[in-house]
Design a protein around this nucleic acid. Sequence first.
DNA 1: CTGATTTTGGAATTTTTATTCCAAACCCGC
DNA 2: GCGGGTTTGGAATAAAAATTCCAAAATCAG
Lengths: 267, 267
Amino acid sequence: MSAPASIEEFRNRLADLSEGLPKRLRQCADYIAANTDRIAVSTVAELAAGADVPPSALMRFCQIIGFSGFSEMQRLFREAYSPGWPDYSTRLRNLKDNGAGSPAALLAEFVEAGRLSLEQLAKSADEAALSQAVAQLAGAGTLHVVGLRRAYPVASYLTYVFEKMQVPAMLHDGAGKLDHRHAMRPGDACIAITFAPYSDETLALAGDAQARGLPVIGITDRLTSPLAKLSSPVLTVPEVDFGAFRSLSATLALSIALAVAVGSARG
Amino acid sequence: MSAPASIEEFRNRLADLSEGLPKRLRQCADYIAANTDRIAVSTVAELAAGADVPPSALMRFCQIIGFSGFSEMQRLFREAYSPGWPDYSTRLRNLKDNGAGSPAALLAEFVEAGRLSLEQLAKSADEAALSQAVAQLAGAGTLHVVGLRRAYPVASYLTYVFEKMQVPAMLHDGAGKLDHRHAMRPGDACIAITFAPYSDETLALAGDAQARGLPVIGITDRLTSPLAKLSSPVLTVPEVDFGAFRSLSATLALSIALAVAVGSARG
DNA sequence: CTGATTTTGGAATTTTTATTCCAAACCCGC
DNA sequence: GCGGGTTTGGAATAAAAATTCCAAAATCAG
């Protein structure tokens, strides 16, 4: 078998082979696939250490891919090496230059929106409210998570993280129009997520929880949101929209941080 | 004189010295100034040949700049290039060990992880694959979206965006263990999302779609993913994990861009 | 033009890096 | 468990690269 002549070909061969490879060689394949950009500037020993295999395994890997050895593989990547792209902002401009509305340009816009959202979140996060929320949730029984439409991905991820951290949590997703409001028992807590235009169902559930005396943690877009009135601490997320859709980056970051903090606090 | 600690410092020193240097050393300085980007991936002999000087001249040049030798200079450029992927699992452990696992600190880490993921996505996104994916989806009938566990939020958001853009789409979420694979009809297309450890159900559905001749668009974490083989274009997302959880920022940005592009292409 | 000083080229040496090879460990079907 | 083939780790070897050193060439001041 002859050596791949281009990086494209290399990637294909990597994808073809990766299955049906024994343990160590698969480790190599995975690490290389995830760190292709380091090949040009690393030694066998460095890459092998990264993949957590002995150097000889990496050599074997190179040969299986079709190269005569590591050096030949490295040559391919060194020749193609152009460090023009470690620069995020120029790359973004390049993507946008594909013309407005092109997939690449759209991607650039959403990446930027996400980044801006995260930056603003870092600046504006209310640490006191966050700590208070963690304290309330850490002391509660079952956590009831509700979020619909665009907030639904956040609600479902929150529930996933709670489950992984062995925190009892329940997702109120309205499936089958089944209503689970009576699952909320004294000692439980509620996390409600909604953004303008605010979802009635979410507000209703949050209101119900409040009426039963459960703590309600709200995650929403502004302090004037109807959810704010129902929540004991309300967490606001400054999400930047692009077009009609939001990136959710900041909301997710806040939510996961909340969940992990609660999970560790509960031990 | 000590070695430059940054590329900035290196450039300054180069500018300072370049005047008043004898012929051969000036050749070195000129060539290096014009080809700084090759330093990381070249040998002494190669650079010397490029500058049209003997290797020993280049060695002298490195020492005059302040390095102990060529290797030290090269290290500077290799390290500066490699994006320095932070090791989040150890950082998380440190956070906990120091008792500094405050919610605010966690939030900062997740924000940072999200930012890095987005930047990395911008740098590494495969525009050709993205365009191809958009073209395939734009020409298809119903779009079948599948993603479970941590990929579920992405799948559900994708479906939400498609619905908003009036693109017929169906979310295969395994609710009620109902299997909807026969809903996939000729002319449809499938979008499958999974990350390591890959979900069997997702792979099964993608495989089924492929077997029926539907185009499969895969969104996954690496090229060696089992999903790659099942997808006609596969889109890889370099998501940074923080602890056991990923921010999903990059995955969502890519997905929304894909959905919006498909939505507009379908008009 | 001469002698002192700097600069230069390349061969010799040292260090690092890649590569091979083989015995031990591991799997898998029986 | 037992014998087949595979896979693995590491020590030994080969290759390549970096680095040093010194004699020859060039430069320059007087």
